[in-house]
Design a binder for these strands. Sequence first.
DNA 1: GTCTATAAAGCGATAGAC
DNA 2: GTCTATCGCTTTATAGAC
Lengths: 193, 193
Amino acid sequence: MSTTQEYGTRERIVRATSRLMQQQGFAATGLKQISREAQATLGSVYHFFPGGKTELAVEAIRHGDREFAELLRDVLERVDDPAAAIAGCARDLAAGLRESGWLDGCPITTTALESAGRVPDIQRAAEQAFQNWRALVHDKLRRSGFPEDVAHDLAHTVINTLEGAEMSAQVSQSEAPLEIAGRHLARLIDSYR
Amino acid sequence: MSTTQEYGTRERIVRATSRLMQQQGFAATGLKQISREAQATLGSVYHFFPGGKTELAVEAIRHGDREFAELLRDVLERVDDPAAAIAGCARDLAAGLRESGWLDGCPITTTALESAGRVPDIQRAAEQAFQNWRALVHDKLRRSGFPEDVAHDLAHTVINTLEGAEMSAQVSQSEAPLEIAGRHLARLIDSYR
DNA sequence: GTCTATAAAGCGATAGAC
DNA sequence: GTCTATCGCTTTATAGAC
């Protein structure tokens, strides 16, 4: 529904691409499949994305970037304590993963790994996404009074541990890795108080 | 060299498949490309792996499993202190990644994410690999005197954080994520002493 | 065990009518 | 902007000679 109704053709194509890349990666996702799921024609896909599959993948990565940034921003604003906020983020990710039947992990990781060192445009878009996510955590920690160097390093590990735990949760079809990661990250953050 | 000389045909095929899947994933790796890099013919590939691409991917995952387990076992045996050993592991991963021109990340993660929830045989092999790696960390922590529940949870986060940091290091072509992860994991482990 | 040839299907991309 | 048809190529997989 969210990819078929109430959005223009271009937006439907980007959303369908993002979801397919999230579930099966870049190489396994065909343009025919995208146009079918987006309820658009192949001609429309090339009309909006003359750069073909690569250009489309870059837009899909940017879409996933905004999507996860929104989730992250929400929980960081809702919960005052940074350690509790990160633990809550891990819980939200676990719930979303379970609700999707363990199919919808990080929207960009699979494509990022497939393309790293081989498709510069996609690699750059993915790098930018991770940077944006780290910046959100970094700002939260700075506003909570953590010194610059501590906040910088913690931002890296918070995002990377959530990424690794989500991957593990998806493969083992269990919320445990994310639940444990949430507790450990909270403990790590609190150890710098 | 390691995939062309001094190994039998079957072993060359598995090694070539593992390396290609490590660098570009499962879907982007063709059987023609595998047979070319393994210096074997397509007929030989199907002779040894009648189950086709999926059976070959499962064997390649198992190969990557053993490969990383060996690296992990080495450093865990070499360094007595568990926190220092894990930090050393992060350093080794960063060095290997840089030396490969940021191409050789985790040998199984990309394929695991591509296949999760879609190719049961591959998902199971990947799940088994992560379980094996956690067991190595778990045993090290138990032998170092950590209680069962603490060792269980730490094993999860050690592997998952290393996974996430290696992914991040690959995408950003920087050793920083792994260096930071090594320090944070050591700090987390020490916090349970 | 190794090799070549080939089938059947799908891929990304393009052209051109509407 | 949308749609269909098609090109050229590659894919997984099989057959069968050697």
